[in-house]
Every structure is written in C-alpha cells, then in structure tokens.
Amino acid sequence: MGDKYVTTLEYRSMTLWEDLKRGGSDISLDGGESFQDLERGIRFSCDEIYDIDQEYYKETYPEISGKDDGQFMLNVAVHLKRAAMYANQVSVEQEVKGRYGTDVRYIIVRGKENSYSDNLCFIYATSLEDKHVCLFQFVCKENDLKYYFQEFMDCLASIRR
C-alpha cells in the first residue's frame, strides 16, 4: 500500500500507510480519530476508551460480557455494528501478536449497511494495557479485504504504548 509512517494516536503510536489521511467521515465509536484513503475506499478509526466510557457501556449493555475490558469493548462494538446492519456475518475472535508487546484481538463483521449498499467488511480490534482500552475499526469493500487484510494486521502489530 505504499510508504508507511508512524503516527501518534493519543497514548499509542502505530505504523500506517501514507495514503491513509486524518479526517474524512467520522466512523469512530466514541469521538476518536478517523482516517480515510479515498483512492482505495478505506476508512479507519481509533478510539481511546476511558474508564468512565467503559462504565457507561457496561450500564447500557448489561447483556454483553467479556473476560476483560478489551474483550468487552470489542463485543460492544461488534454488537452495535451488527444492530445497525441490514445483513451480516461475524468471524470468530482472533489475536494479532504485537511486535512491541501489545497484543490485539479482533473480529471481522461482513455485510451490508442497507439493502442497496455494497458488501462491506469491518474489522474491529482492541488492545488492552493497564485496564486502558483502545478500539480500532477498519472498513473496506468485502471484495477488497484480501488485498488489505495483511497490511492492516501489520499496522495492528506495530502498536506501541
């Protein structure tokens, strides 16, 4: 996907590709930073989920659980996306081993946002350090995922706190 650069996202840094620019349509869950690559039709966001936000989600969605705060927030993000979609499929949770000690778990949601839209692919991922959760969202057309998946996994593996 071209040249890469290291960007700072609140308390973390990670490697992204240069065509992924800050701004664009806000796809974040909680007012985080949004990025987009217009040429490839890719959107990306990063949310720092603070303790007060986690408490809000726990009170609002008592039916959702997780073995820790990172898994809980991942499950909340997937639940909210699925509820807003016309049709969808969800993958099994998997993990990316971080090169700098920050492991990331992720779930892929595939489907349509409405009956007329293209099939999209949403990758939701969370990292957890010291009870501090960071939620990442990557969106592209489903047919394009095979081209971008490894690149995005490499970006997740590059996270440093």
Rank of each mutant, 00 (worst) to 15 (best):
G2Q: 06
D3V: 05
K4R: 04
K4L: 08
L9Y: 15
E10D: 13
R12M: 13
S13T: 15
W17R: 06
D19P: 10
L20E: 05
K21T: 06
R22T: 12
G23K: 07
S28W: 09
L29W: 11
L29E: 06
D30E: 11
G31P: 07
G31V: 06
G32F: 02
E33A: 07
E33G: 06
R40F: 02
G41M: 01
C46Y: 14
I49S: 02
I49C: 06
Y50P: 02
D51V: 14
D51I: 12
I52R: 06
Q54Y: 09
E55V: 04
Y56K: 09
K58P: 00
K58V: 08
E59K: 13
P62D: 07
I64D: 11
I64C: 05
M73C: 03
M73Y: 02
N75A: 04
A77K: 05
H79L: 12
L80G: 04
A84T: 07
M85E: 07
Y86Q: 03
A87S: 09
N88E: 09
N88K: 02
S91G: 04
V92Y: 07
Q94P: 01
V96F: 07
K97Y: 10
Y100Q: 07
G101N: 08
V109F: 05
S117P: 00
C121F: 03
I123A: 05
Y124S: 01
S127W: 09
D130H: 12
K131A: 11
H132E: 10
L135P: 04
L135C: 10
Q137V: 12
Q137Y: 02
C140L: 06
C140M: 00
K141F: 09
E142I: 06
D144P: 00
Y147M: 11
F149D: 08
E151Y: 03
C155N: 10
L156D: 05
L156S: 11
R161K: 14
